[in-house]
Write a protein that binds this DNA or RNA. Structure first.
Lengths: 170, 170
DNA sequence: CGTGAAAGGGTTCACTC
DNA sequence: GAGTGAACCCTTTCACG
């Protein structure tokens, strides 16, 4: 169990006006929209829109543009949530674990946690057999692991492509 | 606790050749690349590349294109993993819960689970106070909830923008 | 922030192999 | 299935008001 800081960095967040938020929201749902169409959608001229987008991109609010692929269509039909505890919480222990877990492509997300377990992982696998392999060859082999608790997703209820912005606009 | 089917749908997955995978991989990391540049990157003529992309998009492998925003920059600096159990597992109970949870913009993902809890949610909030509000006004108010267990992410170790494809290519 | 025009690219055909 | 070439459309990006 960990008892550390709750905030890793002081990422200052900018203040966005209604148009900025409209731009972000639009790019969230359509990452490939052209600047001209985006401008029209938010009621701006193309040049003004382009200038704003530049600023937004440089500010770091936009972490990137990505095609979202379907795990299922790629053959990865199971999602597992894996809770893991380590034998200690020394910085070195955490770092070694984290470096190792980065190398496993099945792991889509990994959080260092407060609470009962040290890490929560979200992993995708093709099927139960694939999961067995992953558990044997990867999860159990990660350094310093003393406890693993896996459960499986039966269904995706919510899987939002993106983060928090809707909250501002709700 | 639930004991249901493990696979919701038979999503047949297509077979992709090396060029398809290169296209998908490229769009995964750069969702805004133009068809012309994409074609060059994968060693195809623009027209051939455009044809393939059409097929890929229609096949459903590509679920969409999105700008990935920074929660942190938007002021959402905490991530919580919330485990929830309901009072029963009748279809109606699940449906009512799921309809309600959809309406909460803080919930970025939600899985129906096998195992000890019925659902796992990943939610973002601004701070502890915001979490308290969420817990009081949203989580506790969701229908049929009998047990809630929250833990907090101290740090993102892995947060891949996308899914499974790297596994094929590793 | 908007306008307008110039310049450069991008997309998409029909056609060919 | 893939490449070529050309037409057309669209986009971006200035300088300026």
């Amino acid at each position: 169990m960990l008892r550390t800081w709750l905030f890793s960095k002081n990422v200052r967040h900018m203040v966005f006006d209604a148009i900025d938020r409209a731009i972000l929201k639009r790019l969230q749902s359509d990452g490939r929209i052209s600047n001209a169409n985006l401008a029209e959608a938010v009621g701006l001229s193309p040049s003004a829109c382009s200038r704003r987008l530049d600023i937004l991109e440089k500010s770091g609010v936009i972490r990137g543009y990505h095609a979202r692929l379907s795990d299922k269509a790629l053959g990865y039909r199971m999602t597992a949530i894996v809770h893991i505890s380590l034998s200690g919480q020394f910085a070195k222990t955490l770092t070694e674990f984290e470096k190792a877990v980065q190398r496993c492509p099945n792991v889509l997300s990994c959080y260092l946690m407060s609470g009962e377990y040290d890490y929560v992982l979200r992993v995708v696998v093709k099927d139960l057999e694939d999961y067995e392999r992953l558990h044997r060859d990867w999860l159990s082999a990660l350094p310093h692991v003393v406890r693993i608790n896996s459960s499986f997703a039966l269904r995706d209820v919510i899987d939002r492509p993106n983060t928090g912005l809707d909250i501002n606009l709700a």
